[in-house]
């Protein structure tokens, strides 16, 4: 398969996924990836990391699946399912086909933090083996949404 480039879904700072305060994402149990600590002001738009179909859409998380079956999960904050969608606006529906970079959800990471939750956004190559996914952005650096984040061979 051709290498798939996964874009940063939000603007912020790249974080090692092992530092995410969630045992599932930190251990890569659902796949390898990176996380982004979103900018409180400029991290409010979450965009599609790859082109494909929206196969899962929750206010706080989504999965986009490429034509070839590979799928990328973006989770907006940790334990944000408990917010019940409050503060999240979805702009697409499950089943929609989107281009990479399309805005899928707008949210307020600063408000999530004010509510005592982590706003960090794991970006996961679902069910990929760790040796086929490489970082294109370095941990600790700033990324804009739509910039290259991962490559999935």
């Amino acid at each position: 398969m051709a290498a798939l480039t996964v874009l940063a879904p939000v603007t912020g700072t790249v974080v090692d996924v092992s530092e995410v305060d969630d045992p599932v994402f930190a251990a890569g149990l659902v796949g390898p990836g990176l996380a982004i600590e979103p900018d409180g002001v400029r991290g409010t738009e979450a965009v599609a990391p790859i082109a494909g179909k929206i196969v899962k859409l929750h206010p706080h998380a989504f999965v986009v699946q490429h034509d070839d079956g590979r799928a990328v999960l973006v989770h907006l904050g940790i334990d944000t399912v408990k917010l019940g969608g409050e503060g999240f606006t979805t702009h697409v529906s499950e089943g929609d086909v989107v281009q990479r970079g399309t805005v899928l959800v707008t949210w307020d990471p600063a408000a999530v933090r004010d509510g005592g939750k982590s706003a960090v956004c794991p970006v996961v190559a679902l069910e990929a083996s760790a040796d086929v996914v490489d970082a294109l952005a370095q941990v600790g650096t700033a990324v804009e949404h739509g910039e290259d984040l991962l490559t999935w061979a």
Binding site: V24, V63, L126, E127
Partner: peptide, 17 residues
Amino acid sequence: AIAVVRSGIAIQVIVGP
């Protein structure tokens, strides 16, 4: 299940997508 994460009465069963 891929894994089970426990925290008191809260159980997370990791099953994938």
